[in-house]
């Protein structure tokens, strides 16, 4: 791969990571003023802010790599649904609180494993973003894990909802561990992470928490894929509509 190809691949990769962080951050920010109680409301808002901050760092770096005048805001607000490359699990609607916390557990556990590897990237900026992110993600994981234990091993109603959330989400976890050609190339170059190699570690950790929470591991009989190729669920367009409308209505506005 030529230096120029490698740079373009790194830019595309950085945008994917930014999209994951932005879309999930925007999605979970919907819990602000809708949390089950005040402290939890504030906690979820803070987790959302960590993700949006992380998205800014990735997009800021993407702008630096692109060096074509586009800013971090342009990446966040001026790309369309088909240009976003986030994993589908991050865009799914927030559902009920149990659904959101189960999603958070699955994603936090993935991010813990992922960032732990990205810290070793040959790309100094990606490694620095990961080193910051991993510390925050450990806090996120502890919180989502405790919620899943409390809801799974809670009342009949909370357990039913947590199990339903898990069953509805499970088929979206497969694509997390299926790196495409670009991701494989970058992993070989020591820049990206080979997520296929994270799967067994992730499964073990998730299964341990689910077992403790008395939840049943779902059947592996369906999978939805497409986030990394730009084929999204119908929910992403609505999310982006809300996220991007101000910037698109007032081009160049700053805040």
């Amino acid at each position: 791969m030529s230096d120029e190809d490698l740079k373009q691949a790194t830019l595309d990769y950085t945008l994917r990571l930014g999209d994951d962080a932005l879309v999930l951050g925007q999605r979970i920010s919907e819990w602000v003023s809708n949390g089950p109680f005040l402290e939890e409301d504030i906690a979820y808002g803070n987790v959302a802010l960590d993700y949006i901050g992380r998205a800014r760092m990735y997009y800021g770096y993407a702008a630096e790599l692109a060096a074509d005048g586009r800013s971090e805001d342009d990446f966040a607000y001026l790309r369309s649904e088909r240009e976003f490359r986030n994993y589908l699990i991050n865009e799914l609607p927030r559902g009920d609180f149990a659904y959101s916390q189960v999603r958070q557990l699955l994603v936090d556990q993935f991010n813990t494993a992922f960032l732990d590897r990205l810290v070793e990237s040959r790309d100094a900026t990606l490694a620095a973003i990961a080193a910051k992110g991993i510390k925050e993600t450990r806090y996120h994981l502890r919180r989502s894990r405790e919620w899943v234990l409390r809801l799974g091993d809670g009342t009949a109603e909370s357990r039913r909802r947590a199990q339903k959330g898990l069953d509805d989400l499970w088929g979206y976890t497969h694509e997390l561990f299926e790196p495409d050609a670009l991701e494989q190339r970058l992993a070989k170059a020591g820049i990206g992470v080979d997520t296929a190699a994270l799967k067994s570690q992730w499964q073990q950790a998730v299964a341990a928490t689910l077992g403790e929470a008395t939840l049943n591991l779902p059947q592996e009989d369906w999978a939805v894929r497409g986030g990394r190729t730009g084929y999204h669920t119908e929910y992403l367009g609505h999310l982006l509509g809300e996220l991007q409308s101000i910037y698109r209505s007032y081009p160049g506005c700053r805040w």
Partner: peptide, 29 residues
């Protein structure tokens, strides 16, 4: 430690160590 203790931090008002964590994320992250 890396993560927040569940209890036992000294209260900044009265100094008591009989305290408990209510939320892992307070007014700011």
């Amino acid at each position: 430690s890396d993560l927040t203790p569940d209890a036992g931090l000294a209260c900044p008002r009265c100094g008591s160590a009989d305290t408990r964590c209510i939320s892992e994320f307070g007014s700011t992250a």
